[in-house]
Amino acid sequence: MFYRPEDGHGLPHNPFNAIVTPRPIGWISTRGTDGSENLAPYSFFNAIAYTPPQVMFSSTSAKEDRGDTKDSVANIRETGIFCVNIVEFAMRDAMNLTSGPWPKEEDEFTKAGITREDCQTIACSRVAAAPANLECRLTDIVTLKGENNFLVLGEVTGIHMRDDCLKDGIFDVLAFNPLTRMGYQDYSVVREKFSLARPTG
């Protein structure tokens, strides 16, 4: 099968969402200038540079009470900070609950019963029990082609790692089984890993 996106695919659901898979999930926590906090998952997320460490996520829809975007991007526009919380399999239900289209006044930490702690380098909360947290300062928000599409870029200014995830000097993802996003309403979990030596030449 071949299709041009502008012509449509004729399938019950958009296959593009399932083709680029699995995708890591950035559980983004933000705080507005009024002190309100937000926590929401984004599967258009990844690490993009080592030195300095940098990450990205993109938001692709809007809420009526936030104009052209959603709570996360709106808060980041105001404050220039955000925290990426890594999602483990055990947190799947809490993560899913925070994905709802809740009013901007709704605190997802409280709604989902998630314990929070203060970040160290930015004025924002983080998911206390997450395997890792990446505290970030905004470097740029890029307006992408299409409606309500924004790419958020940030530099990592502080990193938290849960002690039980450090084994023999490495951050061991099998200690917490990362949750990943697939297509449609599907997710996957990482339970196996293997190593490949990079070629030299």
Score class of each variant (00 low, 15 high):
Phe2Asn: 13
Arg4Trp: 07
Arg4Ser: 11
His9Asp: 03
His9Tyr: 11
Gly10Met: 04
Leu11Gly: 06
Leu11Tyr: 10
Pro15His: 06
Phe16Lys: 04
Ile19Leu: 11
Val20Ile: 15
Pro22Ala: 04
Arg23Tyr: 03
Gly26Pro: 00
Ser29Thr: 12
Asp34His: 12
Glu37Thr: 13
Glu37Cys: 11
Asn38Gln: 07
Leu39Gly: 01
Ala40Trp: 00
Tyr42Trp: 03
Phe44Ser: 00
Phe45Trp: 08
Asn46Ala: 15
Asn46Tyr: 12
Ala49Ile: 05
Thr51Lys: 12
Pro52Gln: 02
Pro52Asn: 10
Val55Ser: 04
Met56Arg: 00
Met56Ala: 13
Ser59Pro: 04
Ser59Asn: 09
Thr60Ser: 13
Ala62Gly: 06
Glu64His: 12
Asp65Trp: 15
Gly67Tyr: 15
Lys70Ser: 00
Asp71Ile: 05
Ser72Val: 07
Val73Leu: 05
Arg77Val: 02
Ile81Ala: 12
Val84Leu: 08
Asp93Thr: 13
Ala94Trp: 02
Met95Gly: 02
Asn96Tyr: 13
Leu97His: 11
Pro101Phe: 08
Trp102Glu: 09
Pro103Phe: 11
Pro103Gly: 07
Asp107Met: 02
Glu108Ile: 03
Glu108Cys: 05
Glu108Pro: 01
Thr110Cys: 00
Thr110Ala: 07
Lys111Asn: 05
Gly113Gln: 11
Arg116Ser: 15
Arg116Trp: 13
Glu117Val: 05
Cys119Thr: 04
Ala123Gly: 06
Cys124Phe: 01
Cys124Thr: 14
Ser125His: 14
Val127Phe: 08
Ala130Arg: 03
Ala132Trp: 03
Leu134Pro: 01
Arg137Trp: 02
Arg137His: 09
Val142Ala: 09
Thr143Cys: 04
Leu144Thr: 03
Lys145Val: 07
Lys145Met: 09
Asn148Leu: 08
Phe150Asn: 02
Leu151Ala: 05
Ile159Glu: 00
Leu166Gly: 10
Phe176Ile: 07
Leu179Phe: 03
Leu179Asn: 01
Arg181Gln: 04
Tyr184Pro: 01
Tyr184Lys: 06
Gln185Gly: 13
Tyr187Leu: 01
Val190Ile: 14
Glu192Gln: 14
Phe194Cys: 12
Phe194Ala: 15
Ser195Leu: 08
Leu196Ile: 14
Ala197Phe: 09
Ala197Asp: 15
Arg198Leu: 15
Pro199Leu: 09
